[in-house]
Design a binder for these strands. Sequence first.
RNA 1: GCGGGUGUGGUGAAAUUGGUAGACACGCAGGAUUUAGGAUCCUGUGCUUCGGCGUGUGGGUUCGAGUCCCUCCACCCGCACCA
Length: 825
Amino acid sequence: MDENEYDFRRVEAKWAPVWESERPFDVPDGDDPRPHKYILDMFPYPSGDLHMGHAEVYALGDVLARYWRLRGYQVLHPIGWDSFGLPAENAAIKRGVNPRDWTYENIAQQRASMKRYAASFDWSRVLHTSDPEYYKWNQWLFLELYKKGLAYRKDSWVNWDPVDQTVLANEQVLPDGTSERSGATVVKKKLTQWYFRITDYADRLLADLDRLEGAWPAKVLTMQRNWIGRSRGAEVVFAVDGSDRTVPVFTTRPDTLYGATFMVVAPDSDLASELVAEADPAVRMAFVAYLEEVQKKTEIERQDATREKTGVFLGCFAINPVNGERVPIWSADYVLADYGSGAIMAVPAHDQRDLDFALKYDLPVRVVVDVPSDEPNDPAVTLVATTGDGPHINSGPLDGLRKADAIAAMVEVLEKDGTGKGATTYRLRDWLISRQRFWGTPIPIIHGADGEEIPVPADQLPVLLPPTEGLDLRPKGSSPLGAADDWVNVPDPRDGSPAKRDADTMDTFVDSSWYFLRFLSPRDDTRAFDVEAVKKWAPVDQYVGGVEHAILHLLYARFITKVLFDLGYLDFDEPFTALLNQGMVILDGAKMSKSKGNIVFFGEELDNFGVDAVRVTMAFAGPPEDDIDWAEVSVTGSHKFIARAWRMAQDVTSDVGADASTGAAGLRRFTHKFLADVGGLVESYKFNVVIARLMDLVNHVRKEIDSGVGPADPAVREAAEVVSMGLSMFAPHAAEDMWSLLGHEPFVGLQEFPVADARLLVEDTIVAVVQINGKVKERLDVSPDISEAELSERALAAVSGALQGKTIRTTIVRPPKLVNIVVAD
RNA sequence: GCGGGUGUGGUGAAAUUGGUAGACACGCAGGAUUUAGGAUCCUGUGCUUCGGCGUGUGGGUUCGAGUCCCUCCACCCGCACCA
């Protein structure tokens, strides 16, 4: 192709090797006088090659990184791979390859694609979480939590994925009860597992979301608040009649305690089986049958709120602490074992679920809040529980009080009597981090013959994964590591007696919960992260990634950050100051998927249109948080724009350093208006508008070159240089080539935007509109400093015809832009 | 049901504090150049019965509303037997 034609292949081939050898975006350690920004894109999982979703996130993250450089900041923009995890292992099983080989081959492929995509990463800081140099510090982190009592083992009902044969954290189970990884229906299993005590941080994780308001998407904040699910209320202790046992229940409505007519215990709770053990055989048999029935149900069935309620009487009674009333204890699966205490006081008059149950099993309904209503509203008749406010009745000392006062009064009574207290409960559960799989970080604990847990001494870290040779990786419900005899059997660090390593590996979300700290000193083999580097760079100024991590990764990273803060390693306790969630790339209105066969391939798009055109398309398609339908955007259009900008640079004939102040003022104004606006636009993520403004600028320059001041005017050069800089955020190859065509040395990405000249931002004339009754009738060219009187006068003159026979009521004058004449007939 | 969000041309979308709705593109139409063009350049393009009408619906505040307030509708997302 002709050298005077824009050829993206030639331009890519020209600059990629230069960036590769010169590494303009690497950030050396040590001081730098410039202010700094830490821009981070969520690192990828290396399954296959990059896809269009990656193309979007890394295009948008790079706009922000490159923008801050152009603003004179030192920018850290690292990349790595989240490279532990199940797909490697599943591929290994399916194809008989080594999970390590599979992983690192995929990383090599993705890395090549990423380099081709020309995001301005600091390639000197690459990390892979599956490298021993990384996961050593994962183990260190685990032991830090363990020392603080924040990592512990317990026997509990857990989510079990029957396909991947491993446990899952609550966060990894989708709302329909299936695994987010394998799609299998998750079942409950009772197992001893490692947990991180994230519930200790529930309050702070919730409260600190307020500080992220405006800087994180509202949606993510809401999702996290929902997930943590704090509810305030009271704990009320009921005694079991004829026994020493007491049962605490959590309620948000302690004010309705006088209306409690029965108690319900979760069938799968220890409490239920303990209570029923004391009952007579018929009751016990009924319970056992019921429990069996309940456990057969899938999570989806169980969560169906419209399902008819079922339950069995447990043959025992509880004593209501405020009135001494004896109420029957039932077991029903609408009460969850793992929320609150697994038992509730049932107030059928004021809780729909309790009412449904009471009506079915003919239990009494007692109204204790007189909710005013025009219609009859006795729950026993209308079958609708009343939840509104009103004076309390049948409630002893609470009679006459309204809800808020009654709640406070009841809490006071309970606390005085020692039968309860104000309490807060969370939906959030502790984070289950054990996984019965191979390709993860080994948990650095040794189990002594006496059952003691012994942390692996720091000088013995990392606990390396054993070789896969001879190891059966197929899922079988226990970790494959347990079968690696040489690995699992170790001397007890205390006395050398036989002991065994913990054979489970960690949830890979542990790996990603702190990786942003490791990027600051990725080669430091003496500590997880360099505290000084952390002080300089962290927290992350701008995080970019998909909304699919709204809860999982982001909640865990916030938690670990707070733990490290408490341990004194960090001086901040929120990891990501600002968050941008990009939308998805879809096709014809549907999510791309292999099964539907509607995939746009990353590599093919780059082959056909070039890296720059794909990146520009990603940014120009619309607001970044919206989905991009690849069928509705024009990559060709992006390519045409890039080529047009490139030709513009090629046409410039003035010399480098030409004095712009002698150039055409009109064009200069346009250029400087762009410079004045670009910051606000990028910082509010309006990348599409920035590109529109660049297009506008290029169109103006084109006109000036062809039929205006001509290619030699210094203002043309100035505009072309600004376009080259601005375009470098989106189309780095074309921009670098333009910079070079304009006679400069590399690299355009290391330039600084000129400061907009305030004198050029003032227009000589402004178009003022003249409205009659709010409708635009005329437009006038006026001076920007026109007086109110003069503008008014000119406006009236301009529309005098239309004012014939009308009475002017009032005239609103807003110089220099608008006059509104209010008239009547 | 609860919470969050979004409704603007044929399409993707713009629109500081209420002040010219539809920037910039895609698409389409026409023209120039050309052997040809899916290249390049130029022009036009919300609807219209040419009076006007137009930002999901209906109301309100205001000299003036895409923007603020209320009502309703539609769609998307999250949560949901959480006591």
